[in-house]
Nucleic acid binder design. Sequence first.
DNA 1: CTTTATATATATACAAACTATATATTAATC
DNA 2: GATTAATATATAGTTTGTATATATATAAAG
Lengths: 184, 184
Amino acid sequence: MLKYAILGLLQYTDMHGYRIKEHIERNFGHMWSINYGQIYPNLKKLYNDGLVEMTEMAQNGEKGPPRKLYSITDKGKEEFAKWLEISPDKPMLLRDPFLMKFVFFGFGDAKRSLEIIDEQIKRYKSDLKRRKKNLNRWENSGTYVRLTAELGVNLNEMFIKWLEHSKQEIENQETAIFHEQAGT
Amino acid sequence: MLKYAILGLLQYTDMHGYRIKEHIERNFGHMWSINYGQIYPNLKKLYNDGLVEMTEMAQNGEKGPPRKLYSITDKGKEEFAKWLEISPDKPMLLRDPFLMKFVFFGFGDAKRSLEIIDEQIKRYKSDLKRRKKNLNRWENSGTYVRLTAELGVNLNEMFIKWLEHSKQEIENQETAIFHEQAGT
DNA sequence: CTTTATATATATACAAACTATATATTAATC
DNA sequence: GATTAATATATAGTTTGTATATATATAAAG
């Protein structure tokens, strides 16, 4: 899938690996983090398959070592276009270490569980703040990019709402158990 | 992460690989799909690390070949408990082949894009129906499991709302472009 | 002015997760 | 009794993800 993310970005403009990582994190970072260890091998493969071209840039006053600028070829554009109009086969995958723990909190210490829930609410809230602040950045980037950014905000708001509601339910239940034990 | 999902499930009851897959898909299937190719190697590793025990069951009138029943050891329970109270380190990861295409629909054929969006709305809606129907199944499974199932429903409803709103915006924009071209 | 810190940039080894497919057993169906 | 369906385990191969090494150039600190 990363293959097509890279090809898609290269349709906007030529880029080198480092810049590609930046862009992916800006465009998909709502829900996606990427690593150089995924980008450079992919670029190499795209190059070997003739889907991108590469030119080594000379030093030009910029920081860092010489860059390798990649651009999409006609073959690359073709393959990307083909991919774009195929109905997505695989369903959404949501993998969240917090949620994985959450399901099993019944086995753990209730107090510690609530602590982790509070931490998570804070995390969601700071994420939401950042995303809302960046929303205007996508206003002129085309409808689809903008709508995707909006989805990120919606997703974040939904999670906060759900987790705050969950916290209350859990606390209420704790109180109920306490009263039971106290015989009231 | 799968390692801990398996250990967690084995705290409820002893299971063999096939059954573990069923349970994971029932409990986490809101956003998670699993494959035998992930389960059996994991069970083997858990066994080698002494976190689970295994007994080969004799045939007992049930269908299929002999089962290997796994149960969690004290060492396994310890490691699971330790993991459960550590603050989750990595952020949520949402990987969706549909969303990946959606961001780039600006490069593709608008008509085909709307078709794929319609397919996706249908998929979301049938998922929602199934999840809502199954909600009552978790009513007595403990607060955390039930709340996680509710999250699945919320997530689904949010996506439908977002995608239907997005569709309208895209269609409106298409119409605007048409009027522009027609000079009205 | 030289050491140190920082941002840039590429690369690779390793581990975890995912896909595809092979194999085998039993129960039910035809 | 042959076929189909459900159960169950296993593994090869690919893709993803993590950790870390390496190197260059600018900025900042001393």
